[in-house]
């Protein structure tokens, strides 16, 4: 579904992403893990069209979307959930969902119902301002808002950031559920343990280069990864 070939992204003179290639097959969960500053967010933003890549190729459903506008990319079915949730805090929950469906001209009632079924708490709080929600609820709203665009691919930037462990579990359950319903997911995470457990396939990004890749479960057992990202638990 999404194929990236030799992607380079520069910020000013500094290159943040130095030629990465990856593949996200349809209906899968693929994760990109790595430390702070490895270039994870930059990669996602480049795919979403929010930063301009220097060169390389981003193929979505066979077409090169590199250099296209963010709006065009959303219209093709790629939605990003930005880091730190970024819900519209002074808009109600329902308004947030409606903004998510901004590019759609058809009826969105069914989609609102679907989001409410996934997250009953959002239905209870439909008229509340999004800023009054807890962190976990805001993350749910961010996911719900992304679903409103009926995306084929959802990209999530650190969905577990700043959330309590129990809530993190709930969020990952939801990620699995959405994937089961047919949406492809590209997940970037610092919480490598959780991310690799749900992912079909994982890539490890270090200072702008992919240093390792493999099935989620295989990477979980990889010693280097255990040492670098999961905390040593050998003893």
């Amino acid at each position: 579904m999404l194929k990236i070939n030799d992607l380079h992204v520069n910020y000013g003179g500094i290159s943040a992403v130095k030629g990465i290639s990856m593949h996200v097959p349809e209906k899968s969960i693929v994760t990109l893990i790595g430390a702070n500053g490895a270039g994870k967010s930059t990669t996602l933003k480049a795919i979403a069209g929010l930063v301009k890549a220097r060169n390389g190729e981003i193929l979505f459903q066979g077409e090169n979307i590199l250099g296209k506008d963010a709006i065009d990319i959303v219209a093709r079915g790629v939605t990003m959930i930005p880091e730190g949730r970024k819900v519209f805090v002074n808009l109600s929950v329902l308004e947030n969902l409606k903004v998510g469906a901004y590019l759609r001209k058809d009826n969105i009632e069914d989609d609102i119902k679907r989001v409410y079924d996934l997250f009953p708490i959002l239905k209870q709080r439909a008229w509340q301002l999004a800023g009054t929600l807890s962190g976990g609820e805001q993350q749910m709203l961010a996911v719900g808002r992304a679903l409103m665009a009926r995306p084929k691919l959802i990209m999530m930037d650190e969905p577990s950031l700043g959330l309590a462990p129990l809530i993190v579990n709930a969020i990952f359950d939801i990620i699995k559920e959405i994937n089961k319903q047919g949406t492809t997911i590209l997940l970037i995470e610092q919480n490598a343990n959780k991310a690799l457990k749900v992912a079909d396939y994982g890539y490890v990004l270090e200072t702008g280069r992919i240093t390792m890749e493999g099935k989620g479960m295989d990477l979980l057992k990889n010693e280097k990864i255990i040492e670098a990202y999961l905390g040593s638990s050998k003893k």
Binding site: L50, T79, N90, L91, K98, V99, G100, Y102, R145
Partner: peptide, 23 residues
């Protein structure tokens, strides 16, 4: 209207608004 919602979304967060496909 939906234009108004887009205005407010831009006011709240430009990056998130753009990620929703708002020009």
């Amino acid at each position: 209207s939906s234009y108004g919602r887009a205005f407010k979304a831009i006011r709240e967060d430009e990056v998130a608004a753009e990620a929703m496909g708002i020009n």
